[in-house]
Each structure stands twice: as structure tokens, then as C-alpha cells.
């Protein structure tokens, strides 16, 4: 289980995380829905270990990983805009974790097949469409044999029509892993397509909701308050 307890993070006088707590169980795809500026990227950075929290703890399977650097956390991370390594081919990108003794050739072949990436293995990332770049980023994270998956708006570059195809594929693959998955997005529709449980983040605070539709109302209210 991925667990975060009472996370606080401030930048100078600006409090971004105000006591955030989450718990994600194996086999669950928990979607965190939040507007831009709600603190979801800061939360992602604290969970992956890029940022240290001012207060609070992060644990995986009962092990406190708050003090561990990103390389020792074993969190499979798929960022916004995919961040594929431009100088490497698709194959080299996906096999990257093997350089650090993570994953195996066998897993690589399985995942490549599952995500229909075989024809593109020798391509450089810039030649791929947004959807295929997202698949490669997902494959790269999956090959690293993660204990937890964290996806931060991974299909921003994909248009709506293609999202309707790619989201069920991602959902199927992620559910097969049977590990905790945290999926961050600002789009309640996207949340509904992929998630099994839902959270809303507003002003550095998280609330659990029963369906993504509830997020629409909360986000509309937030936008009205912000005058958007």
C-alpha cells in the first residue's frame, strides 16, 4: 500500500501542501483530480522523492521511504509530456531500467506486446505521436518493476478521440499489475475513464469523493471563486 501521512510543503511563505494524507491499495487506481495550482505536482514530487516534505511521511508496504532518494523508492513514474530520453530509441528508452539492474528482457517483451509497441522499437521518440509517446513512457516505468505507479497527467499530449481508446488500455494494463496506482489529472472525464477511486485536491487539501462527477461541481466552484 502507498501511504502518505500529513504531508506539508511550503515554498517561502506559500503553503502548497497543508496536511495531505492518502492511501492507495494494491489493485486500486486512485485518481487525484485537481485544478492547476492545487498542489498536485508538488505532491507528486514529494511522493517520487524529488522534493522533501517539510513535515509528514511517505511509506510503501509499511516501509517509511520519506528519507529515501528517488532512485531507491521503486516508484514507476510517468510524467506529463512523457519526458522520453530524446537521444535514445524507443527500445533503449524502455530498456533503460535494466541498466540499473531493474526489470528483465522478458518483462520488456511482454509489455511491448501488450502496448503494441513492436513496430516502433527502433524509432526515436520525436517521430512518435503523442499517444505512442505516452505508451512508451508507461512501458519504461512498467519495465522497472515498480512497487507503486504514479502517473501525472500522462496523456496531456493526446487528443480526446485517442484518449477514448488509450485510457481503457492503460486501465487494463495498470489493473493487471495489482500494485497501488496513483493517477493525477485535472480532467474529471479522464478520471472517470481510468479510475477505481477518486480524490479531489483543492488548495493543498485532499478530499475523498465517490465519483468523478462530484469533482466537476467542486472544480466549477473553485473556478468561480478564482474568477475564471
Amino acid at each position: 500500500m502507498l501511504e502518505a501521512q500529513n504531508l506539508h510543503k511550503s515554498f517561502a511563505a506559500h503553503r502548497v501542501l497543508k496536511g495531505v494524507s492518502i492511501s492507495v491499495h494494491p489493485g486500486e487506481i486512485q485518481v487525484l483530480i485537481g485544478l492547476n495550482g492545487s498542489g498536485k505536482t508538488t505532491l507528486q514530487r514529494v511522493l517520487t522523492g524529488i522534493l522533501e516534505p517539510d513535515q509528514g511521511t511517505v511509506s510503501i508496504g509499511g516501509q517509511d521511504i520519506t528519507a529515501l532518494p528517488p532512485e531507491d523508492r521503486r516508484i514507476g513514474y510517468v510524467p506529463q509530456h512523457t519526458a522520453l530520453f530524446k537521444h535514445l530509441t524507443v527500445r533503449e528508452n524502455i530498456l533503460y531500467p535494466l541498466r540499473n539492474g531493474r526489470g528483465s528482457e522478458e518483462t520488456f517483451h511482454e509489455i511491448v506486446k501488450l502496448l503494441s509497441l513492436e513496430p516502433y522499437l527502433e524509432w526515436k521518440p520525436h517521430k512518435l505521436s503523442g499517444g505512442f509517446r505516452a505508451r512508451v513512457a508507461l512501458a519504461r516505468a512498467l519495465v522497472s518493476a515498480p512497487r507503486v505507479m504514479l502517473l501525472d497527467e500522462p496523456i496531456t499530449e493526446v487528443d480526446r478521440a485517442k484518449k477514448e481508446y488509450i485510457l481503457p488500455l492503460f486501465r487494463e494494463v495498470l489493473l493487471q499489475l495489482n500494485i497501488p496506482v496513483l493517477y493525477i489529472t485535472h480532467d474529471p472525464w479522464e478520471a472517470g475513464q481510468i479510475g477505481t477511486s477518486f480524490l479531489v485536491m483543492k488548495d493543498g487539501i485532499i478530499n475523498r469523493i465517490d465519483s468523478p462527477e462530484e469533482a466537476f461541481a467542486l472544480i466549477r466552484e473553485q473556478a468561480r471563486i478564482n474568477g475564471e
Binding site: G49, P79, Q80, A83, R99, R102
Partner: peptide, 24 residues
């Protein structure tokens, strides 16, 4: 983000610098 991803894939800062930053 490329460096952050490399870190989550097991690279310490030195490896991420040599494998991702220097080629770029």
C-alpha cells in the same frame, strides 16, 4: 523531468548526469 524520470528508474544524480544530461 527527464532527469527526474531517470532518478525514478534507478539512476543516482551522477548516473543521470552521465547517461541523460551529457548526451543531450
Amino acid at each position: 523531468e527527464q532527469i527526474n524520470v531517470a532518478r525514478t528508474l534507478g539512476d543516482n544524480p551522477q548516473k543521470a548526469y552521465q547517461r541523460v544530461v551529457i548526451p543531450l
